[in-house]
């Protein structure tokens, strides 16, 4: 672990079709924490983590991961996308998907070897999916599919994880299993940023909360930040003018 903060964001503005979604975000994330990203729909939660990984063009500001731009440290970063973002009819097995987590570390031309397979198996074991390793991914329940993504992220052996709603559409038992895995990762000194939309559980699950609504409303230890006043500011639509102006800006400058 380097002394650098795993994630540092300065004055980040991101726009979809020229309509700003995130506005002037500043953030310094301490290492070894399990962090929940909380906010209403359209607050820019997924946008934030996608922008951190360079999946979206950034309008202004910068993001540094471990003190460096994303491309330099890609192998230290793991990602769990939303479950709906892929085609589950794709002709691959559970094992193949988990092995994809190793691709970043394999160079060109190299195949996943025995070590990679063993690691993938142990990751599947951790999420209790080992018996399903050779199944085609369409033949899994929603919770199992979510756990496949989690296993893939484990196989990435990253120091920093971005997870986009890993609890959506899973049953209570799966949710408990997932959070146990996340805590284990945290205890190993890794940093996790998890987009989450359920307030009561957010309070139990996370060490720190990032309250987001187009910009950072608050970021700090859960006990300090989980206050009625701050939550009201996050969810209370106090930024109607901001979004109204964003709308006007989008209308005035049509997408090219």
């Amino acid at each position: 672990m380097s002394a650098e903060s795993p994630l540092e964001i300065h004055d980040l503005t991101v726009a979809y079709h020229r309509k700003p979604v995130l506005w002037g975000v500043d953030l310094v994330v301490p290492a070894g924490q399990l962090i929940g990203i909380i906010g209403p729909n359209g607050a820019g939660k997924s946008t934030l983590i996608k922008a951190c990984m360079g999946l979206l063009p950034v309008q202004s500001g910068w993001v540094k991961l471990f003190g460096q731009p994303f491309n330099k440290v890609a192998t230290r970063v793991g990602y769990v996308p939303q479950r709906e973002s892929v085609d589950w009819d794709f002709p691959v097995s559970v094992m193949d998907v988990v092995l994809m987590g190793r691709y970043g570390r394999l160079g060109l031309l190299r195949r996943p070897g025995k070590a990679d397979r063993d690691l993938a198996r142990s990751c599947l074991e951790k999420v209790q999916l080992l018996p399903y390793a050779n199944r085609q991914i369409a033949n899994l329940s929603g919770g199992q599919q979510q756990r496949v993504f989690l296993a893939r992220a484990l196989a990435q052996q990253a120091d920093l994880y971005f997870m986009d709603e890993p609890f959506s559409g899973v049953d209570a038992a799966t949710e408990a299993a997932i959070i146990a895995v996340l805590r284990e990762l945290r205890d190993q000194g890794r940093t996790l940023l998890v987009v989450h939309h359920d307030l009561p559980t957010a309070r139990q699950y996370f060490d720190r909360l990032l309250l987001l609504n187009m910009n950072v409303v608050a970021f700090g230890p859960t006990a300090d930040v989980y206050t009625p006043e701050l939550l009201q500011r996050t969810y209370g639509g106090r930024l109607t003018i901001l979004s109204e102006v964003a709308q006007a800006l989008g209308a005035q400058e049509p997408p090219r």
């Binding site: 506005w23 002037g24 500043d26 950072v216 409303v217 106090r238 800006l249």
Partner: peptide
Amino acid sequence: SAGIAPDHVHEDAERIEHVLG
């Protein structure tokens, strides 16, 4: 109201000033 640091707001305002109705 939006809690953004004063040294960040100028760039935004440079664009917004032309579109505010």
